[in-house]
Design a protein around this nucleic acid. Structure first.
Length: 365
DNA sequence: AACGTTAAGGATTAGAGGTA
DNA sequence: TACCTCTAATCCTTAACGTT
């Protein structure tokens, strides 16, 4: 057996450190107690639909992040219409009966999709897409620019092909909506992420990615990226995107290495939000940028923050525990974790100590 | 209080079929 | 051929209930 020293390097790909630091907060769900109501805002710059995740001051990693969609080229009639439809958004129904129930009174497809995109932003399926793009970036070696074919991405997400070799229009449509959401949703946060920096000194506004170009195979169709996301079920056959958060070896070195064989497959019949494995993996990677590992491999995180970031917010603690430890087992089986145990804490505040496998997940800087 | 069972319903996907 | 709709199947969560 030939074992090169750099073997593990070749089996991993880097994901930007700053992105990972904000990712769990930027993707907080509607059930998260820090999540504020979505608001419509009219600024001198223009119109925005936005949602703010308020800071939780008891831990430095629980930063405030606003996600917002700039609404371009709105006429004043369209603005009034949007405000009218906004009053029909039933957020309580969203949390109690599901997001589609809370949105069912909104008739206009574009406005319904707009709210849906905001409320479910950065769910585990979109996170899987982001991981795929960073892996492609490492593979292609062309910096932040990534080219990919839509069907290759759908294949990696684990969807099955139809008889004629394509993918169902619903899946194709969902992918274009996800890509456009990652493109046009801006993240706004204070850039006090690096330890030791001035607090709140600088505000960063960035999208996760920007779509630079797309391709249509064979017969040129009349494809409009935004119209497809807002109204139809279309998807371009290939895209070129630019990753707006991008760092890696050869740059400043602020990144986390993920195993190339990271599982991005979506499970049949499973709701994207119940993909706890992806949520825990990303949260651990995020905490590896916030905290440094003890003895090079141990990470200690309070159970309270783990549960909040996994969206285990129900009152049934027995069930929450069951799901948490089941998820830990899944990450153990895939080799990301070498171990995990509950540390007895003071006054019911318990911590979980994770032993991270550096072959599969490793932070730099 | 912790745990298992059950039923109802939401979210998602597979597959078939319709339309232009 | 690409786009779109509909239905059935699948998996998950919640809530109610009973047992330990």
């Amino acid at each position: 057996m030939v074992v090169a020293v750099s073997k593990s390097e070749a089996l991993t790909f880097p994901v930007d450190g700053q992105l990972l630091m904000v990712l769990p907060r930027a993707g907080a769900s509607v059930g998260n107690p820090d999540m504020q109501l979505p608001i419509l805002r009219s600024d001198p710059d223009g119109y925005y639909l936005e949602m703010r995740v308020e800071t939780d001051t008891s831990d430095p990693s629980e930063i405030a992040v606003t996600r917002r969609v700039p609404l371009e080229d709105l006429s004043s009639e369209e603005w009034e219409e949007l405000k009218e439809q906004y009053t029909k958004l039933d957020l309580k129904n969203c949390t109690d009966q599901g997001i589609s129930k809370g949105l069912e009174k909104i008739q206009d497809r574009k406005i319904q999709r707009l709210f849906m995109a905001l409320l479910t932003f950065l769910n585990p399926r979109q996170v899987a897409i982001v991981l795929y793009l960073y892996r492609q970036a490492a593979h292609q070696g062309t910096g932040p620019a990534v080219f990919f074919r839509s069907n290759d991405l759908l294949e990696s997400l684990g969807y099955t092909r139809t008889k004629d070799g394509g993918f169902a229009s619903k899946l194709r449509s969902q992918l274009n909506r996800d890509l456009v959401a990652l493109h046009r949703t801006e993240l706004v946060f204070a850039q006090s992420l690096r330890k030791g920096n001035n607090i709140g000194a600088k505000v960063t506004i960035k999208s996760i990615l920007r779509i630079k170009d797309f391709e249509i195979d064979n017969v040129p169709r009349d494809f409009d990226l935004v119209k497809a996301a807002d109204y139809t079920y279309e998807l371009a056959d290939a895209y070129t995107v630019s990753l707006e958060f991008f760092d890696g070896p050869g740059r400043t070195g602020d990144y986390v290495l993920f195993a190339n064989n990271v599982d991005m497959a979506q499970k049949l019949g499973s709701n994207a939000k119940s993909d706890y494995k992806t949520k825990l993996l990303i949260y651990l990677a995020s905490r590896m940028k916030w905290d440094s590992l003890q003895e090079g491999q141990y990470l200690v995180v309070s159970k309270q923050y783990l549960f909040k970031n996994l969206d285990l917010l129900g009152s049934n603690s027995s069930r929450n525990n069951q799901i948490f430890w089941r998820t830990v087992d899944e990450l153990k089986q895939e080799g990301y974790l070498l171990g995990a145990q509950e540390l007895p804490g003071k006054k019911k505040i318990s911590n979980i100590q994770f032993q991270i496998n550096p072959e599969k997940l490793r932070a730099h800087q």
